[in-house]
Design a protein around this nucleic acid. Structure first.
Lengths: 230, 230
DNA sequence: TTTGACGTTATTGTCAGATGATATGATGAA
DNA sequence: TTCATCATATCATCTGACAATAACGTCAAA
């Protein structure tokens, strides 16, 4: 009955475009209201279902929010949403483990300067990391070691306060958890009776970023050989 | 009748997850068949409509392809699609630019060591970057400067060969493209009659990674002040 | 045997209409 | 005023149906 143009797209895709256009044309910002689904259905000349498929898609992408009775509003950008897609991307294209390790090194070493500043500026930040080090020292079981090890590394990135990197690093950790379990020999670092994590933390507290970087680089380097034979 | 867990998500979101899970669990690759919408509706215990909202969404992202009579197949998950939406998000309400800049600094500075190795190991890599520097030297117009500037920075990451970072950096560039246009004053670095990019490249060729890091950090730092007043 | 036309059919694409769930806003009482 | 209560608009989901289309099998002709 409609659809003058011979469009290869599905109706919902067309509606998605129209909604995006509507947002841009009216210069809508996060939180602004959109017409109701029924109104759009009427004005676009399609059924509400087609509109619904479009709003569902946009909602999934975080471009709009929807709630009963409140209606549709323009959404705000959400890193978690992006994280989900990237996670899926990671799950499909398996990147070589070596590359994933290098990625971790770049990020974790790269943020140490920011982490150090945060630790020095706020005692609470230091205590949080210190507490994690204490947990690592306990060394109840491999499981708990791995848990707190991840916690430490994640926290290091988190306190740096650069959210996109936190998000990306979280994704990486997901994949490292899997094979951290395969690589069980952590004795090397625990046997010495000291805790690399604490050394790193202390270096950061003293503003000795270079030393922390070297320690962390070496610490992560221990995975490298293990990756080779797997 | 269903929905045992008190999930805050919508049904279609749950179905999206289930389909993604199905793809991962069965290790499906692009082109592989998925169950029909009706089959999924039955097996998930929801109506076909809910499945449809999910497949529409996934189809829009290119995660699945669908065609009448052929059914649903796994598509090639194209990050370009994702970039489009990131760009759209950024057009609406931009993410804190400071954080984006820091992210860039961490990644671009962090990979320089790997880039240097690649440059030294393979003359071809050097020539590629050198050629880009030549283009920057020409300085025809702001547009071309921006284009080759982006090219240079992307290439630096690319030659380092850490694919996950290349991918992530690619996404970041989506955010930066728009705002590089707003910041037009590049004279500061060009007027001196030298090209920072070339300096960085030469440092890397000589294996002087520290110097390259400092140069790049300073180079990117010039954005910082511009971010403040915008 | 190969090839090409043709009808069948499975599967997505779209519609209409209805009910449930829920947050907002209005109403009224303390 | 402030709080509780209720009505209602709007999304969330379902049922059931029909249209459109492309793959598949069939059969006839070369």
């Amino acid at each position: 009955m409609m659809n003058s143009t011979i469009n290869k797209q599905t109706l919902s895709e067309i509606v998605v475009s129209k909604i995006k256009k509507h947002i841009i044309d009216n210069d809508l910002k996060a939180g602004d209201r959109l017409p109701t689904e029924q109104e759009m259905a009427d004005s676009f000349g399609v059924s509400r279902l087609s509109v619904r498929e479009a709003t569902t898609t946009l909602s999934y992408l975080g471009i709009i929010d929807s709630a009963p009775r409140r209606g549709l509003t323009v959404g705000k950008f959400d890193l978690d949403r992006l994280k989900e897609f990237l996670g899926f991307h990671f799950a499909l294209n398996d990147y070589p483990r070596e590359k994933l390790l290098y990625t971790r090194v770049v990020i974790e070493v790269g943020i140490l300067g920011y982490s150090s500043k945060a630790i020095i500026a706020d005692k609470g930040v230091y205590y949080k990391l210190d507490e994690i080090c204490n947990e690592i020292d306990k060394y109840d079981s491999l499981d708990s070691y791995i848990h707190w090890d991840i916690e430490f590394h994640s926290m290091l990135v988190k306190v740096a306060g650069i959210e996109p990197l936190v998000m990306f690093n979280d994704l990486l950790q997901t994949f490292f958890r899997k094979f951290r379990l395969e690589i069980s020999s952590i004795g090397k670092y625990r046997d010495k009776g000291h805790n690399v994590h604490r050394e790193i933390l202390e270096s950061l507290r003293c503003g000795n970023v270079d030393q922390a970087e070297n320690l962390l680089r070496e610490h992560l380097g221990c995975y490298k050989e293990k990756i080779q034979n797997s």
